[in-house]
């Protein structure tokens, strides 16, 4: 392992990736990663608007991972046990960590944000349809769709506003790329790439 770490680092560089994190993602981690990312991009003389866009993409993706990753630690059953008789739902929400991957890179003159996390197989179809729909929209259609979604009454079951991917599609310079890889009977790995 120790002999191959450099290969791993070089592999990231070959893909243009200059910032990466794989593992449990928390709000605090995202905030600090975002701050360092901004600092790095400013030092590279990136324009103010690209710094903000890339930062915003990292925030949206990290919060998607935090809210929706199917890979959690500790797994729910373990956590309920650790909580004893207390409200297991509340306890799980505050204690659990969500796992995922966040990377930021630069290739062919564009910054990109490439992220991934596990999702439940039954959610694949819906998400694929949503993202395919966004891929087919132009900037004006995206704007109208964003505004229509934003006007909807808040959905109590959704932890976010349901606007994250539309926001990403609007800020991207090319359609969002995505992929689903079936891992087993329950889970798939979802990857998404936003070119800014």
């Amino acid at each position: 392992m120790v002999q191959t770490l450099y290969d791993f680092k070089r592999d990231l560089s070959k893909r243009g990736i200059f910032l990466s994190f794989s593992g449990p993602i928390s709000q605090d981690l995202m905030v600090e990663m975002g701050a360092t990312l901004k600092q790095k991009m400013k030092l590279e003389d990136a324009s103010k608007s690209s710094v903000l866009r890339v930062f915003a993409m990292v925030v949206e993706n990290a919060q998607n991972i935090i809210h929706y990753s199917a890979e959690k630690y500790p797994r729910k059953k373990q956590n309920e046990k650790a909580c004893g008789g207390e409200d297991p739902v509340k306890c799980c929400e505050s204690e659990e960590l969500s796992l995922g991957i966040i990377t930021v890179g630069y290739e062919e003159g564009y910054y990109f944000v490439l992220c991934g996390n596990m999702i439940e197989n039954e959610k694949v179809k819906g998400l694929k349809e949503k993202l395919s729909k966004l891929q087919g929209m132009n900037k004006d259609e995206l704007k109208q769709f964003y505004k229509a979604q934003r006007k909807q009454k808040p959905d109590k079951t959704s932890k976010g506003g349901g606007l994250g991917f539309i926001e990403m599609a609007r800020k991207a310079s090319r359609p969002i790329e995505f992929d689903f890889k079936k891992i087993d009977e329950d889970l798939s790995f979802f990857s998404v790439k936003i070119i800014i």
């Binding site: 925030v59 949206e60 349901g162 606007l163 994250g164």
Partner: peptide, 16 residues
């Protein structure tokens, strides 16, 4: 100076 997409939704809710 910056707000995420779910804050945007809440702001719309407030303005409505």
């Amino acid at each position: 100076t910056y707000f995420n997409s779910s804050s945007s939704k809440v702001l719309m809710n407030i303005f409505d």
